[in-house]
């Protein structure tokens, strides 16, 4: 035991000497400052701050720094950070000790060299090795058990989260998603937003009934002709003239059976509007026949898709 204390003291002195010792690099100093020198167990991190005084205009060649990884069989370099100041470079080294010591003993962390660029020249600076004291772990002596699994404790039961709040959130989001479907359905004309097939003759027949209620006059008759003209135009998406009846019927086969009354309608309209003979037209195709034609067209258009 006394021997170990003496050894530790010697080690402290040695490390102190290493710290105090200036680097033999043209009078430039390399200083190693360790967090502590002793009391490292297996797995402990060993940190050290190495300050390298640099001449004016010198810069550190970072390619010359040690690469994180295994350094010796018992020591890994975990990380290295560099801070450059005016006149000095500070390297923060983090090693990890894997030496499983059976007794307290000094272990030497190897030194390394770094290069400085001064003007066009390269200058090598040596970081000296230093020593740390490693110590054994104390014994762990649980009561002996036959099954090794018995050393493991049972899992802690998982805590119960409060689901009510999350159900509320999920419900709210589902509601928002359904609401977002509404403009989409409108845009695509789905479901309730589906456009009904345009029924110009259904609208026309309502107009004709209003005209009928007003009593038969010449103006009313001409208006009725116009109402049917506009409905035909709307059904075809273009202006339908007397000469177009056949092509209109070819395009809209649902009205095919109405070819004769449609021809009569166009002839009467032609006479009324362009022959300036509305009395003759009213005689040839009276208002009630217009109503009959309008109704027939309105019935036929229900078959349009």
């Amino acid at each position: 035991m006394v021997g170990r204390i003496v050894l530790a003291l010697v080690m402290v002195l040695l490390v102190g000497a290493a710290q105090a010792q200036p680097g033999a690099n043209d009078g430039q100093a390399v200083t190693v400052r360790a967090e502590r020198d002793i009391g490292f167990f297996a797995g402990d991190l060993v940190t050290a701050e190495i300050t390298i005084a640099t001449p004016p205009g010198a810069s550190l060649d970072r390619a010359s720094l040690p690469v994180p990884g295994p350094v010796t069989y018992w020591l890994d370099l975990r990380a290295i950070t560099v801070a450059e100041h005016k006149g000095a470079v500070t390297l923060r080294m983090t090693y990890q000790n894997f030496y499983v010591a059976l007794d307290a003993r000094p272990m030497e962390i190897p030194g390394f060299s770094v290069r400085l660029q001064v003007g066009g020249d390269a200058r090598t600076m040596d970081v000296p090795p230093w020593t740390i004291g490693v110590s054994p772990l104390r014994e762990v002596a649980p009561p002996a058990k036959e099954d090794p699994k018995a050393y493991l404790q049972a899992d802690r039961p998982a805590g119960l989260a409060d689901a009510v709040r999350w159900w509320a959130v999920a419900g709210g989001l589902a509601g928002a998603a359904i609401l977002a479907l509404l403009p989409l359905a409108y845009h695509h004309a789905w479901g309730p937003f589906r456009r009904r097939v345009d029924r110009p003759f259904a609208i026309a027949i309502r107009h004709l009934r209003r005209l009928e209620a007003r009593g038969e006059t010449e103006e009313g008759y001409l208006e009725a002709l116009l109402v049917l003209h506009r409905a035909l135009d709307r059904a075809d998406g273009r202006r339908v003239l007397a000469d177009d009846v056949q092509t209109f019927l070819d395009r809209h086969s649902v009205f095919a059976s109405l070819d004769v009354p449609l021809e009569a309608f166009f002839q009467a309209s032609r006479r009324a509007f362009f022959g300036s003979a509305s009395a003759q037209a009213r005689h040839d195709l009276p208002f009630r026949d217009l109503l009959v034609l309008g109704r027939a067209l309105a019935v036929a258009e229900r078959g349009r898709t």
Partner: peptide, 8 residues
């Protein structure tokens, strides 16, 4: 023009 202007 012919498809747009109503007649009569």
């Amino acid at each position: 023009v012919l498809a747009t202007v109503p007649a009569p």
